[in-house]
Amino acid sequence: MFERSVSGPEKLAFDDPVAELHVRIVNGTVNVVGTDEGPARLEVSEVEGPPLVVTQRDGVLTVAYEDLPWKGFLKWLDRKGWRRSAVVSLAVPAHTRVEVGVVGAGAVVSGVKGPSVVKGVTGDATLVALSGPVRADTVSGNVEAQSVTGDLRFNSVSGDLTVVDGSGSTVRADSVSGSMIVDLAPDGPTDIRLTSVSGEIAIRLPDPADAEVEANTASGAVSNAFDGLRVHGQWGA
């Protein structure tokens, strides 16, 4: 069992194995990198307001505020608690399970092969070269996924989703008003299901493509740029 309160710049290395990483911060930035060598490492370069609490227990490394629980995270809107900020960087074994929660902060997760879960209230997230299953839930934060090869699931109220060079076998995305741009380079069968109430949806596939597409809209237009694909049906223009 390891526990430390961090109120200023500090670097820590963890000799004990790390199987799970939990990070929850408000404002600032969090950067998580999966590596194939060395122990887990933490660098806190800036802390304003309440200290961050760093704990390691039974293979779980946690960097978070004591008053910011993971359960019900997306409903955390304590304005008084927003008077805080932290800049945190972590390097963990590539197969670590990663959970990152941000409120008003930017998050970057890269090189992780284990499952990744990202929750954001107003913070944006960038996901790079993740090969494990990925789940991203936001209220208004945007998510950009680059070269993600694992299954991707995204849920948001008004946040946008951008997928670049995606090659996972499954993409599931739901949003109320957020837009979705999904640029895929699949290396095998891929199942894509995108749903939005008022946001725009764009899917880009390699040409030629072997694809079956079903698109439904109540009031928006449907268009395509594939010569062999025709738009028909009574819904949509």
Rank of each mutant, 00 (worst) to 15 (best):
L184S: 09
R153Q: 12
S156T: 14
S158T: 02
I192T: 11
I181E: 14
S175P: 03
T149R: 15
L161H: 04
S167H: 14
V171E: 12
R172C: 03
M180C: 04
A185C: 07
G166E: 10
S169P: 15
N142V: 01
T195Y: 00
T162A: 14
D183S: 14
N142D: 15
T162Q: 13
G150W: 11
D187V: 07
P186Y: 06
V171M: 13
N142M: 02
L194F: 02
L161V: 02
D183V: 02
S158W: 00
A185Y: 04
D174T: 10
S169N: 12
G150C: 10
V157R: 03
V171C: 11
E144G: 07
V176R: 01
D174N: 11
T190W: 05
S156A: 13
L184I: 00
D165G: 14
G150D: 08
V143S: 08
G159H: 03
P186E: 08
S169K: 14
F154V: 08
D191G: 03
Q146D: 13
S179M: 02
T149K: 14
P186A: 10
D160A: 13
S175D: 02
N155P: 00
D191C: 02
V148F: 08
G168P: 07
D151E: 15
G159P: 05
N155K: 11
N142F: 00
L194N: 06
I192C: 13
G168V: 04
T170M: 13
D165K: 15
A145P: 09
D187E: 12
G168R: 08
T149I: 03
G166D: 10
I181L: 14
G166F: 08
L152W: 04
S158V: 01
A145E: 09
A145V: 06
V143W: 04
R153S: 15
G159L: 04
R153F: 05
T195E: 08
M180W: 03
S147Y: 14
N142Q: 05
G166C: 09
P189K: 06
N155A: 11
E144R: 13
V176Q: 00
E144H: 07
T149Q: 14
L152F: 15
G168N: 08
D191I: 00
S169R: 15
G159D: 07
